[in-house]
């Protein structure tokens, strides 16, 4: 019976995650505008955009894979959000984290991306096909420091269960991994920038050169699903990083604050940098964050 409660809670979490994700998107646009000396759109602009997209009257489809890809994208987003405990050991907000540990989450994260990439490729648009190759190449870049930090933390805490990782960081701010293993955290947080395709690493979407990247051919309801998926996915990743580095959360307020801090980190960094080319991004990830992260990694290895 408890599983049905879980499902109910999960629905709430997904809807809440969507709302929060859209809000963060709006805030991001607002911050960008203010940094550029503009007034910027309302923070609720993303809600309006979503409503408009859903209520577009026509759409085109290029094939089965094109059709299903937004669903995969949404599924990938929901999966990540639900597999990561927002508040560990809370019946409602630990979500479905009993279903799998950190490794499961890491691989499930690819699910949505792969789905979207396939849909994009099925559209037959050359830009859509080009963008995922860039994305995957860049992924090979940022995953290396990210995996470094994940493995380091797992070995350091003797667990890959996210709940246990959170539990290991309890007991004051200095127990957070951010302070316990600062170099690993730096590596992980830099990798996070790549994961969000935020500005120095935004070559995947690259509006100036390849239209809007993978979703070039997507429109209307399809696009609204992708938009939804991306928003939820974004929140899921913030929660994941919060659990990994910022000691998780014990109540909702704390969760909001911590994810918001992470969000601000991404937004501020992304607003002050130009864009790397793919191979530059890859080289960057394979040098600085990796070397920084290795300091702690070797420390853990020796210990």
């Amino acid at each position: 019976m408890w599983i049905w409660y879980k499902v109910l809670y999960a629905l709430i979490v997904v809807i809440g995650g969507l709302a929060y994700g859209l809000l963060l998107g709006g805030i991001s646009r607002k911050i960008t505008a203010r940094l550029q000396g503009r007034r910027g759109p309302s923070v609720f602009q993303n809600y309006i955009d979503l409503i408009k997209l859903i209520r577009k009257r026509t759409a085109i489809s290029h094939g089965v894979m094109f059709f299903l890809a937004p669903m995969f994208r949404l599924l990938g987003g929901i999966g990540v959000l639900l597999l990561v405990p927002i508040i560990a050991n809370n019946t409602a907000l630990s979500n479905f984290s009993f279903g799998g540990d950190l490794i499961v989450v890491l691989y499930f994260m690819v699910f949505g991306c792969l789905g979207m990439a396939l849909g994009a490729a099925d559209s037959g648009h050359p830009h859509s096909a080009l963008a995922p190759t860039r994305g995957l190449a860049q992924m090979a870049g940022y995953e290396l420091p990210f995996l470094l930090s994940v493995i380091g933390l797992a070995i350091a805490h003797n667990t890959v269960s996210l709940s246990n990782l959170v539990a290991a960081q309890q007991g004051g701010i200095l127990h957070w991994n951010l302070f316990q293993y600062p170099f690993l955290s730096i590596a992980g947080l830099i990798a996070m920038l790549g994961m969000y395709m935020a500005y120095p690493f935004s070559v995947v979407m690259a509006p100036q050169e390849i239209a809007v990247g993978p979703p070039t051919e997507y429109s209307s309801t399809f696009l609204s699903f992708m938009f939804t998926g991306r928003s939820i996915f974004g929140v899921g990743k913030y929660v994941l990083f919060m659990d990994l580095f910022l000691g998780g959360a014990t109540n909702l307020v704390e969760a909001f604050v911590k994810t918001f801090v992470l969000f601000l980190f991404v937004v501020f960094i992304s607003n002050v940098f130009p864009r790397y080319r793919t191979e530059q991004a890859v080289r960057f990830f394979w040098t600085y964050p990796l070397v920084i992260g290795l300091i702690d990694f070797i420390r853990i290895f020796i210990k």
Partner: peptide, 11 residues
């Protein structure tokens, strides 16, 4: 700043 009215460009 047309974006304040919700006007933005897409590719």
């Amino acid at each position: 700043d047309a974006e304040r009215f919700g006007v933005s460009t897409v590719g």
